[in-house]
Design a protein around this nucleic acid. Structure first.
Length: 593
RNA sequence: GGAGGAGUAGCGAAGUGGUUGAACGCGCCGGCCUGUCACGCCGGAGAUCGCGGGUUCAAAUCCCGUCUCCUCCGCCA
């Protein structure tokens, strides 16, 4: 009968068998990857988590097993007894880890049969995302996905080992917690016992880890699930995992060192070196030179400011923008003068996505200037632009004139796009950098108030504290991000550990006394009882695995991810619920249309 | 909330108004085959061209709507 293991005890994993095991009797179990039926002899590749191995059924050796092997189809689950032998001369397959040996099949048991799968279980096929997610348990059988899961496990294991050695304690914090007003939209969970009230799933364990510092836990970490009800991207899922760390009695540099060593350990899993010295760049410098706060340092093409050169220019789009307080900046595409008009139009469409109104361009062709805006620029201005841009014959210059924020964002993203498309990036290069001194606040036009750029528990830079009273715009935070190849791996800060200062920060954000009390009263209370200086960092585990695993979708590093509409084709979540469940939760559905 | 791309047998994919009864590859089913490992050879089944309207003598192909997946903007302390 099917499924019964009677008489079979697994002795080896398929992928681990080698010439060392010659003449050994083995029992393997796994899935049929492939059957090659030659009529007189049948080859079966049997796959388990460790890899696969070839089993041969020969009627001359074992008629019964051979007959049984004729029934086999792909993805049948089997148990096989046999003996390891060297492959005959000329039949060694050097391509395969187990290619020097094979199993002479003596006894075959079919543990379960399988229907033809919706897609083939190998890395050569590329089924649509919805199919992969609907049959995720089959998708995960593919070597690529199996490898991702193993990599993820190893990274988490390395993290736990490393932090344990450094005297950190892994402490769990609640998933059912309190909704906080700042930041991302919360996932809410209705309380049955408290009609009309809701828990929120944590966007991060931020407040709890600070409370743990006040508790004297001193060094905390958690592989923490976090939830944010915002729109999805190729690197953003509504539930994701952070390596969450907090320490007491430390400086920013202590956190840098710890994080670098942790990353060193994790990236070593794929032989990627974290340099001895990870450079530190200020936010202001990053925006100035690269336009983004997560610069990709694998290629140059920095932004150059030509505002001063064109501020009196005839070309109104440039001079007018500068006079209104905006900027004109440009990037240089080496040997880009052969870009066609339609290619440049495409680049213009791209920067418009980021709010730019247009993209001005100048081609330097054999000393000749080719540009629709050249006629509005004086020779002197052109010369100065070329000098500022360090342009040579054959180059293409691209300019955006706008508010500084739009200029930085549009050119910064254009730079990344060109870097990728022009193949300026060495895929084997890994450029880490710290970004520090972020602005504490950003003005939110919709809410007509300042909001925290990192979070409101971030300490301002000590030398900037006075600006809390009069210069919020330029107040810098003691916060930091770790960036790799243009991807933000994580960020953190030194926290406020003082009630008075915390209160001032809330004030700056226009919180009322009542709001502070209702939303953060418990933190303010805790600050009364002896709070150590503390700080920490949260690293995006999923993004780290993406880069380590060299994949461009976060879904490939999560066993059961959601689609872009935050649904699961596998479980069909989310779904409607029974009327009775809603009643228990005191919830009435209303139609808002 | 918005922009773009995609949806054709189980999977991948060609086909942009008719003369093809919708290619091709993989898989599947049957037969043959004793050294394959992308096995080979012969034969076969399998498609309301995402769904709903419309234009036309004629629609996979053009138009409108709608659903799903992907990428991006906004959003993501």
């Amino acid at each position: 009968m099917l499924g019964n293991l009677e008489g079979f005890n697994r002795t080896h994993n398929c992928g681990e068998l080698s010439i060392e095991n010659e003449k050994v009797n083995v029992t393997i179990m796994g899935w049929v990857q492939k059957r090659r039926d030659h009529g007189g002899v049948i080859f079966i590749d049997v796959r388990d988590r460790s890899g696969f191995v070839q089993v041969v059924f020969n009627p001359d050796l074992n008629q019964k097993a051979f007959k049984k092997a004729e029934e086999l189809r792909s993805e049948f689950v089997v148990a096989i007894k046999g003996s390891i032998r060297k492959r005959p001369q000329g039949n060694i397959n050097e391509e395969l880890p187990t290619g020097r040996i094979e199993i002479e099949g003596h006894e075959l048991k079919i543990l379960d049969k399988a229907d033809t799968t919706p897609f083939l279980i190998n890395d050569d096929v590329n089924p649509g995302e919805d199919l992969r997610l609907k049959y995720r348990y089959l998708d995960l059988r593919r070597p690529m996905m199996r490898d991702m899961m193993e990599l993820r496990h190893n990274a988490v294991k390395a993290t736990r080992d490393f932090l344990d050695k450094k005297d950190f304690w892994e402490i769990e914090t609640p998933l059912l917690t309190k909704s906080t007003p700042e930041g991302a939209r919360d996932y809410l969970v209705p309380s049955r016992i408290n009609p009309g009230q809701f828990y929120a799933l944590p966007q991060s364990p931020q407040l709890f880890k600070q409370l743990l510092m006040i508790s004297g836990m001193e060094r905390y970490f958690q592989i923490a699930k976090c939830f944010r009800d915002e729109d999805l991207r190729s690197n953003r899922q509504p539930e994701f995992t952070q390596i969450d760390i907090e320490m007491s009695f430390i400086t920013r540099e202590d956190i840098f060192e710890l994080t670098e060593n942790l990353l060193r350990r994790i990236f070593a899993l794929n032989d990627i070196q974290v340099p001895k010295e990870v450079p530190v760049m200020t936010y202001q410098e990053a925006i100035k030179q690269y336009g983004l706060d997560k610069p990709d340092l694998r290629f140059d093409m920095r932004l150059k400011n030509i505002s001063d050169v064109v501020k009196e220019s005839e070309f109104n789009i440039f001079s007018g923008t500068v006079k209104k307080g905006g900027q004109v900046k440009g990037i240089k595409v080496n040997n880009g003068s052969d870009f066609s008009r339609s290619q440049i139009d495409e680049l213009e469409d791209f920067v418009k996505l980021y709010g730019a109104k247009g993209l001005a361009w100048i081609k330097i062709e054999e000393g000749e200037i080719n540009s629709p805006i050249a006629k509005f620029l004086s020779d002197k201005e052109l010369d100065q632009i070329i000098e500022r841009m360090e342009a040579q014959s054959g180059d293409l210059l691209l300019f955006v004139a706008d508010k500084s924020k739009v200029v930085a964002n549009s050119l910064g993203n254009l730079r990344v796009k060109l870097g990728n498309e022009l193949d300026l990036i060495d895929e084997d290069d890994y450029k880490f950098t710290w970004i520090v001194d972020f602005p504490m606040f950003e003005y939110n036009v919709e809410e007509e108030r300042y909001v925290a750029k990192h979070h409101p528990f971030t300490s301002p830079l000590p030398e900037d504290i006075d600006k809390l009273d009069n210069d919020l715009e330029n107040l810098k935070a003691n916060s930091y991000d770790i960036v790799l190849n243009g991807e933000e791996l994580g960020g953190g800060s030194i926290r406020i550990n003082n009630k008075k200062l915390q209160h001032k920060v809330f004030d700056a954000m226009n919180f009322t006394e009542d709001e502070i009390k209702n939303k953060f009263g418990f933190l303010m209370d805790a600050f009364e009882y002896g709070t150590p200086p503390h700080g920490g960092i949260a690293l995006g585990l999923d993004r780290i695995i993406m880069i380590l695993g060299n994949t461009d979708s976060i879904r490939n590093v999560i066993a059961f991810p959601k689609t872009q509409k935050a649904t699961s084709p596998l479980t069909d979540a989310p779904s409607s619920v029974e009327e009775k469940q809603l009643e228990e939760l005191h919830i009435n559905l209303v139609n808002l249309d």
